[in-house]
Structure formats: structure tokens, C-alpha cells
Amino acid sequence: MSTQKFNDERLLNILLAPQISEKATFVAEKNEQVIFRVASDATKPEVKAAVEKLFNVTVDSVQISNVKGKQKRFGRYMGSRKDWKKAYVCLAPGQEINFAASEQG
């Protein structure tokens, strides 16, 4: 694996949470991809190394998209939620990440 280039402490802070939604479930079943919320300064190689290190799987590719925060009202003032980054991680054929099993082990 290519995790030797990156600091282990940095890799543990890259992945924030799995993105669980109806769209994410559909993408996971159709394309063998998993969607993660990642740190806003994360790069594709860092996300790949972090997923390979934490879940012991082989990653084919990573696509990253920046998500703009929604405009919201706070009383009579307009504000906005924070922008965040989403990573679509494409796993090698036959690989899968089971979040229910990883919590118990």
C-alpha cells in the first residue's frame, strides 16, 4: 500500500464520516463506491491512503466534490452553513466496506 508517504495521524483525521443517504446507497449498490465526508483540505491520494489503511481494502479511484453550504436564516439575519468536501471512493472488484462489522471489531 501507498500509506508510507503520509503521516498516520493525518490519515486518521482525513475521513470524518460515511455519507449515508438514499443517493449514497444507490451509488454504493450500482458502482461499488462508498461516499465519505472528508476534511476540507484533503487530497485524492490522502483519501485513498486513509481508506486503505482504516478498512484494509484496495481502492481503485477517488472522485472529490466540494459541497456548498446552504443559505439559512438565523432570526432576521441570513447566514450559511459551512462548505464541506465529499469523496466518492471506488473500490476494487470484490471489495466492500461493512460499517456494521467495523464498529464491533
Rank of each mutant, 00 (worst) to 15 (best):
T3G: 05
C90H: 13
I35A: 06
Y88L: 13
N13R: 14
A49M: 07
G79D: 06
V34W: 00
K5E: 04
K82F: 10
R81D: 09
E96S: 15
S80T: 11
F26A: 13
A87Q: 06
Q104A: 08
K85E: 04
L16G: 01
V47Y: 05
L11E: 02
A42W: 08
Q33I: 12
N13G: 07
I35Y: 01
S65G: 06
Q33D: 04
Q33G: 02
E22I: 11
E29K: 15
D83G: 09
L16T: 12
L15F: 07
V62K: 07
P45H: 05
A101Q: 12
N56G: 09
W84G: 11
K5N: 08
L54R: 05
A42G: 11
L12S: 11
A87M: 08
L11N: 08
A50R: 01
L91E: 00
D83C: 12
Q104V: 13
L15D: 01
L15T: 02
P93Y: 00
E96W: 01
A87S: 12
P93Q: 05
S65E: 08
Q71V: 14
K30A: 13
V89I: 09
C90D: 07
A101C: 02
K23F: 04
S65L: 06
E29Q: 12
V27K: 02
R37K: 14
A92G: 02
L54A: 05
N98W: 00
L11T: 09
K82H: 13
Y88R: 10
E52W: 02
E9S: 14
I97R: 09
R10A: 15
P45S: 01
N13P: 04
K23P: 01
V38A: 00
R76C: 00
V27Q: 04
S21L: 05
I35E: 01
C90R: 09
V27A: 10
D83S: 14
V89C: 05
Q33T: 11
C90K: 13
E29G: 14
G105F: 05
V34R: 02
L11W: 10
V51M: 06
G79P: 03
E29C: 00
K68N: 09
V51D: 02
L15V: 12
A42Y: 09
V27D: 04
K44S: 06
F55I: 01
S21C: 03
S21K: 04
S21N: 08
V67R: 11
L15S: 02
F74W: 12
T3L: 06
C90S: 10
F36I: 02
M1Y: 06
F99G: 03
S21Y: 02
I64H: 00
K86I: 09
D83Y: 07
V34A: 05
